[in-house]
Amino acid sequence: MIAEEENKKDEKNEKLLVDLCEYYLLLDNRSSSELILICVPCLVKAASNKENSEEVQKEVEIALLALSFVGIWKKIDRELYLNEITEIIKYHQKHRNLTHLAYLLAWQFLVSRFCCERSLEYVITYELHFAREATRELNELIKCVDWKRKQEEKEEKEEKEAKDILALMGWFEPLEYFLDPYKIGDKEFVGLVGSIVQVLRATKENNGDANCVYTYFLRKIVENGAVKADDLLKSGTVDIALEELQQATLNNETVLHCLLFLLNLSWRLEKKEKDEKEETKRKEMKRKALEKTEEEGFEDIIESFPEILVEVQFQFGFRFPFIASDYFVNT
Results as ranks from 00 to 15, higher is better:
residue 245 L to S: 03
residue 251 N to D: 15
residue 239 D to H: 12
residue 284 E to Y: 02
residue 249 T to C: 12
residue 283 K to S: 09
residue 244 E to S: 15
residue 283 K to Y: 01
residue 237 T to R: 01
residue 262 L to N: 06
residue 225 G to T: 11
residue 235 S to C: 14
residue 258 C to K: 01
residue 239 D to S: 10
residue 285 M to E: 15
residue 283 K to V: 08
residue 261 F to C: 08
residue 275 D to Q: 07
residue 276 E to H: 08
residue 259 L to T: 03
residue 251 N to I: 12
residue 276 E to P: 15
residue 245 L to G: 04
residue 276 E to V: 02
residue 254 T to H: 02
residue 280 T to A: 15
residue 255 V to A: 04
residue 233 L to A: 07
residue 226 A to W: 00
residue 266 S to H: 07
residue 251 N to L: 08
residue 285 M to A: 14
residue 254 T to E: 10
residue 256 L to W: 06
residue 267 W to Q: 12
residue 242 L to K: 09
residue 223 E to M: 04
residue 259 L to V: 01
residue 233 L to P: 05
residue 235 S to K: 14
residue 265 L to P: 00
residue 245 L to T: 01
residue 271 K to W: 04
residue 225 G to C: 11
residue 247 Q to Y: 07
residue 261 F to V: 08
residue 226 A to Y: 04
residue 249 T to P: 04
residue 230 D to K: 14
residue 260 L to K: 13
residue 277 K to R: 12
residue 252 N to C: 08
residue 223 E to A: 07
residue 257 H to Q: 11
residue 284 E to L: 11
residue 248 A to D: 10
residue 237 T to E: 08
residue 263 L to A: 03
residue 258 C to V: 02
residue 250 L to K: 01
residue 239 D to V: 11
residue 247 Q to S: 14
residue 257 H to Y: 07
residue 266 S to V: 05
residue 285 M to V: 08
residue 285 M to F: 09
residue 284 E to T: 11
residue 256 L to C: 07
residue 248 A to Y: 05
residue 266 S to K: 12
residue 273 E to Q: 11
residue 232 L to A: 08
residue 229 A to S: 15
residue 234 K to Y: 13
residue 226 A to F: 02
residue 238 V to S: 10
residue 274 K to R: 10
residue 253 E to T: 12
residue 273 E to W: 00
residue 229 A to F: 12
residue 277 K to G: 02
residue 254 T to I: 04
residue 238 V to W: 02
residue 270 E to H: 03
residue 264 N to A: 07
residue 281 K to W: 10
residue 277 K to Y: 10
residue 273 E to V: 00
residue 247 Q to R: 15
residue 225 G to Q: 05
residue 268 R to S: 13
residue 270 E to T: 06
residue 274 K to T: 12
residue 273 E to I: 00
residue 244 E to I: 13
residue 238 V to M: 13
residue 277 K to H: 09
residue 227 V to M: 04
residue 233 L to T: 12
residue 234 K to N: 14
residue 230 D to L: 05
residue 236 G to K: 03
residue 273 E to G: 01
residue 269 L to A: 06
residue 263 L to V: 00
residue 283 K to C: 06
residue 240 I to M: 06
residue 256 L to A: 05
residue 231 D to W: 11
residue 271 K to F: 09
residue 268 R to Y: 05
residue 265 L to S: 01
residue 234 K to P: 03
residue 271 K to I: 09
residue 273 E to Y: 05
residue 249 T to S: 15
residue 285 M to Y: 14
residue 255 V to H: 07
residue 242 L to E: 11
residue 269 L to H: 03
residue 278 E to S: 08
residue 235 S to L: 10
residue 249 T to D: 15
residue 223 E to D: 06
residue 223 E to F: 09
residue 284 E to N: 10
residue 280 T to Y: 00
residue 262 L to W: 01
residue 248 A to E: 14
residue 276 E to S: 10
residue 240 I to W: 02
residue 258 C to P: 02
residue 278 E to Y: 06
residue 283 K to G: 00
residue 224 N to R: 14
residue 232 L to P: 08
residue 265 L to T: 00
residue 281 K to Q: 14
residue 254 T to S: 14
residue 224 N to V: 10
residue 240 I to E: 05
